[in-house]
Amino acid sequence: MPTIALLIASNCFMTIAWYWHLKGGEDKALPLVIVISWAIAFFEYCLAVPANRIGYLHGWTGGQLKVTQEVITLAVFTIFAIVVLKEPLTWRHAGAFGCLVGAAAFMFAGR
């Protein structure tokens, strides 16, 4: 589904925009980091806006789009945290992900 694919791609850009500077960007001035992050985030918006419009036009509610986006965000961030930030997964990650998947299931129940 194009909505899911676009949301995954947009979340990859947003995760990078928000967190890239935590490893390797510490030496850059904060105003420069902000400008670079905004430049990266531009591409996130170029994908997220169409994703939400397409999803909405195909019958998704705003709530369904938001909860789905949050599940994707956590999944993308988990991969980023492991690969880039070198942070280990803990039971808290699994619990948070499970709660969001449950929230998504509630949003789509009965449709």
Rank of each mutant, 00 (worst) to 15 (best):
Y56D: 02
P31T: 10
F43A: 08
T61R: 10
V33I: 15
A9K: 00
F77E: 11
I82V: 05
L47K: 07
A94E: 13
C99H: 06
L32D: 10
T61H: 10
F42R: 08
G55A: 06
V76S: 00
P31N: 13
I79Y: 11
T78G: 15
I34H: 15
F80G: 05
W38R: 12
A48S: 10
V101R: 03
K66D: 10
L89R: 08
V101Q: 11
G95H: 07
T68G: 07
F106V: 04
T90G: 10
I16A: 09
L89S: 03
L74R: 13
T90N: 06
G102F: 12
N52Q: 12
R92E: 01
A96N: 15
A39D: 01
V83W: 06
G95R: 01
L57D: 00
N52A: 14
A29L: 13
R53L: 05
Q69L: 06
K66S: 13
I54L: 09
I16G: 01
Y19T: 12
V84K: 06
L100A: 05
A94G: 14
S10P: 03
H21M: 05
T15S: 05
I16L: 06
F80Q: 00
T15N: 05
V101S: 11
I36A: 12
L7H: 03
F108H: 06
Y56G: 05
G95A: 15
E44T: 15
V83G: 07
S37G: 00
E44M: 13
A39G: 04
M107K: 09
W91F: 14
D27V: 12
